[in-house]
Design a protein around this nucleic acid. Sequence first.
DNA 1: CTCGTTGACAGGCACGTTTCTGCATGATCA
DNA 2: TGATCATGCAGAAACGTGCCTGTCAACGAG
Lengths: 362, 362
Amino acid sequence: MSRTDTSRRGSRQGRAGIRDVAAAAGVSITTVSDALNGKGRLPDATRRHVREVAERLGYRPSAAARTLRTGKSGLIGLTVTTYGDEPFTFTEFAYFAEMARAATSAALARGYALVILPATSRHDVWSNVALDGTVVIDPSDHDPVVTELVRQGLPVVSDGRPAGTLPVTAWVDNDHEAAVLDLLDHLADAGARRIGLLTGTTTDTYTRLSTTAYLRWCERVGQDPVYESYPAHDPCAGAVAADRLLARPDRPDAVYGLFDPNGTDLLAAARRYGLRVPEDLLLVCCSESTVYAATEPPITTLSLKPRRIGTAVVQLLIDAIEGIDEGRPVEQVIPTELIIRTSSQRRSPRTTVSAPRSPAPD
Amino acid sequence: MSRTDTSRRGSRQGRAGIRDVAAAAGVSITTVSDALNGKGRLPDATRRHVREVAERLGYRPSAAARTLRTGKSGLIGLTVTTYGDEPFTFTEFAYFAEMARAATSAALARGYALVILPATSRHDVWSNVALDGTVVIDPSDHDPVVTELVRQGLPVVSDGRPAGTLPVTAWVDNDHEAAVLDLLDHLADAGARRIGLLTGTTTDTYTRLSTTAYLRWCERVGQDPVYESYPAHDPCAGAVAADRLLARPDRPDAVYGLFDPNGTDLLAAARRYGLRVPEDLLLVCCSESTVYAATEPPITTLSLKPRRIGTAVVQLLIDAIEGIDEGRPVEQVIPTELIIRTSSQRRSPRTTVSAPRSPAPD
DNA sequence: CTCGTTGACAGGCACGTTTCTGCATGATCA
DNA sequence: TGATCATGCAGAAACGTGCCTGTCAACGAG
């Protein structure tokens, strides 16, 4: 009758299926599957023969069918928070790029691929992709996306410790408080008497922890806090805030900027006010950019080691996916690195006779 | 008998399937599918009822099953060339980040998600993900990945015009030659007598087109070309090459750097040789970074408009996927933008007698 | 000679959708 | 009044794998 015969309709539109391979090799579908996946018990001769035929036909197994059958897609979501309607904010470019790069490499090495999914995506896109797990960057408190993912039984690993009771599978983060305290001590050692802070108005964990660490340090050494906040996702607001900070009557003689562009912004502001770096103003900012190695003067930066974070996050996630994380710790702290350059080091006290710069030509 | 009854094994592991929804709503599977997808002819009452039940059960359709059935996954590959074992080279950070950001947004707006897939990926990863199409950034001549994808019948759109006979579906690019010619004219207008070039040793299209445009311009105006090449993927080589360029006996009085970090590198080199910018040396580099707005002095940059490119590439690709590109052009040229800052503008010609700098103190 | 055992494969079900086809029911119309 | 048609839904066939369950031959042991 009209039963589905072996030839079907002849290799359907150019793409060869497992059936075609089986027919061409003169074996059954099971044998083909086993031969290609290294399972079952087949003599090497058969295995080789099947592989040859598959290669000749250009056979590529259907990812969808395999995913449907096995329940594993080999896909990992990379969720980035959004400001406005664009994914990942401008000030995090270097950090995000490095982190994503490392995460991509790490995932690839274990046979997984990354899918970029902004947190505020349309729901239909989220449900349209089969994920084995998700990496969430800096999840906000009680993130609905994370909650939904966990409810579906998917492992979720976050970059940045989760706020509140967010039920992530694991997380990776720096010890932001220790890093800030260290850095402030470094500035104080270099001779800073009053250290200012350029921080953000957002409530994310990084900003919050760094700022409270700063305030605690101030309290400990008995310095009045002097800081300016600005919306970090606005590319222009940083320059204005830097200017404001240096225009204050209680102008600091050292500044730490929490965000990547703060270094150039503060340097520009210092020039406007005729302040020499590092003689009159010590400067440190948190950045992954290498431009600060070539500025005049080179600026000391705090690196959060995004490469290591990206790698660690993916490893933890894949471990959870493959179920080999039972006894493993669910949180991992990556050390930061203070890259000390000219901007935070006072020369030997020869500066007493340095030529006077033009105060403020413009 | 042991026929598959309606209850099956009871909503299988927490995840509700379409069957469960059908049973709970007292309708057939077809009705559920039609109700949720807005197809078929159902009264609003039924549609609403089914949606309610689905919502109550927390039903999420299986992406894998849908993909298997429809042949569309809603996934777009984003292929980046790799140098070494890490995806996308360091010098392209800002460009890549902006481009990827725009591409992600554009894809999302049309219901697609992006999968990051380095070109040199293991083959098993490539075949393990069901793609509807792929964006390729700067494909090399006769790229095996592109060839393979096209052979599978998948649309491929490239950022950067394909070299040789690479069979891409469509491509988007800037008019690099026109951009360089424009930029050199701008430098000449600003008073440059001998313009140097900082270029790369790689053979990618961008480098090649830009360099030949430079050579053509030199020929046209009768200037001897003076340029240095370096491997652009090496983060340190740029500084060395910049230094070499300014150390030459036929030192240029204006330089265009093809890559993002060249601006700070050239600025640092200029300082080392005591050259004032722009008085003694005019500077332009190709970059998307905003740091050049705040350097001392601010540096003129050529922007390749990665946002527009990312958006255009994705639009073209999705048009091809959905088959609405029949009459459309398969190539699209995005205009560049020269962001003119202090580094390429000479003040009123008062510098005619600029003091001779110390040639090479170190 | 029979029986368990092992190797080498084939049959067929299930994964969870989408969608084509088909079957009722009532309304419309010649 | 029977034929035509739109409506509202159900059945079931795919989609291409992976894998569980058989079958059949060969073979050594009792």
